[in-house]
């Protein structure tokens, strides 16, 4: 499939899914009701629309930051939510909740982003020391690193009797998304959109330090910008809807296999694909065990794995 065809197909799928998402849920609302039932309209505005938008934004921006991280680390098998960034963000909110419970949400969010940034730098520092001939060590070390940080967060939360929060932060869910309580995620959307402006720089950094310097790039600066973008998006996602694992891992790999790694061309498609897959997972989660909900992360894990395996065994599609 060409990039254009993928783009059009993805956009149509996204619009359809968004339409479906508005009318699927515990409360039955049909498009007809909107005309004469003010309650139905209210439900739309307070819950369904925010939920739909949150899923689209989270899917798109997690996919974009996954791509950026894979370029910075030069490894296809890492993503922020398993390699320490997500756990760092959770640690940040935990610290804020424990020590500065009175500060506004924005301040907590900033602390989460800062902690996410520190832990991402930590991961990068560890990766630098790994032998380049062993690329599979990178995701393994990432998981161990993220696991240790995560365990620390859980331990402290357990001691402080805050375990239920950890669950909300680490296991993403859109059922709690309500008007007035999710809007910070628009900042994540803005950050992901802005990172498109430096797409070429991330692509070049993915070609390595030597290529970056010889093309006149400030290598360290690009890495810092990338990590900051990743950390902000991750922290915002953790705070507003919770972490959704695998989006940042699977979606960039799908795009890469279909269309390659020229980010200036592919990053919008990655965002679109992330939005489509996360929204589809959320809708499925709502209908599969109706009236109960399955968390989006669980559904995405299955869908993502199936799509990814299919692509792995299908012939690579990028050009010829």
């Amino acid at each position: 499939m060409t990039r254009k065809a993928t783009g059009v197909f993805g956009l149509v799928a996204l619009l359809l899914l968004m339409g479906v998402s508005l009318f699927v849920g515990v409360m039955n609302v049909s498009p007809k009701d909107l005309w004469h039932d003010p309650e139905a309209m209210r439900l739309m505005g307070i819950s369904r629309l925010p939920r739909t938008l949150a899923a689209v934004i989270a899917g798109a921006s997690l996919a974009v930051t996954g791509t950026i991280m894979q370029m910075l680390v030069r490894n296809r098998f890492v993503e922020p939510s398993t390699a320490g960034t997500g756990q760092g963000a959770a640690a940040g909110i935990l610290i804020a909740t424990l020590f500065f419970p009175a500060v506004p949400l924005f301040a907590k969010m900033s602390l989460a982003a800062i902690c996410a940034l520190i832990s991402s730098f930590g991961f990068l520092a560890i990766v630098r020391r790994l032998p380049p001939t062993q690329p599979l060590l990178v995701p393994l070390v990432g998981m161990i690193y993220g696991g240790i940080l995560g365990a620390g967060v859980v331990f402290v939360a357990y001691q402080a009797d805050l375990l239920q929060y950890i669950d909300i932060w680490m296991n993403g869910e859109f059922s709690g998304v309500l008007k007035g309580r999710y809007e910070l995620i628009w900042v994540a959307a803005a950050v992901a959109a802005l990172s498109y402006l430096v797409a070429d720089q991330f692509a070049i950094v993915g070609m390595g330090r030597v290529a970056s310097i010889s093309l006149g790039l400030n290598y360290r600066q690009v890495i810092t910008i990338g990590l900051v973008a990743i950390s902000i998006v991750t922290a915002l996602t953790v705070v507003t809807v919770g972490m959704i694992p695998f989006v940042g891992l699977v979606v960039p790999n799908i795009t890469s296999r279909l269309l390659g790694d020229n980010l200036r061309r592919t990053l919008p498609i990655t965002a679109l694909l992330g939005a489509v897959l996360v929204l589809a997972s959320d809708i499925l989660g709502r209908v599969l065990r109706y009236p109960f909900e399955i968390p989006v992360g669980t559904v995405f894990g299955v869908i993502g794995a199936v799509v990814f395996l299919w692509l792995l065994y299908a012939r690579p599609g990028h050009a010829r």
Partner: peptide
């Protein structure tokens, strides 16, 4: 050794 999946034209464009 360029790891990203790029076409020849994309590489040269960089």
């Amino acid at each position: 050794e360029v790891a990203p999946r790029l076409t020849v034209r994309e590489l040269v464009s960089f």
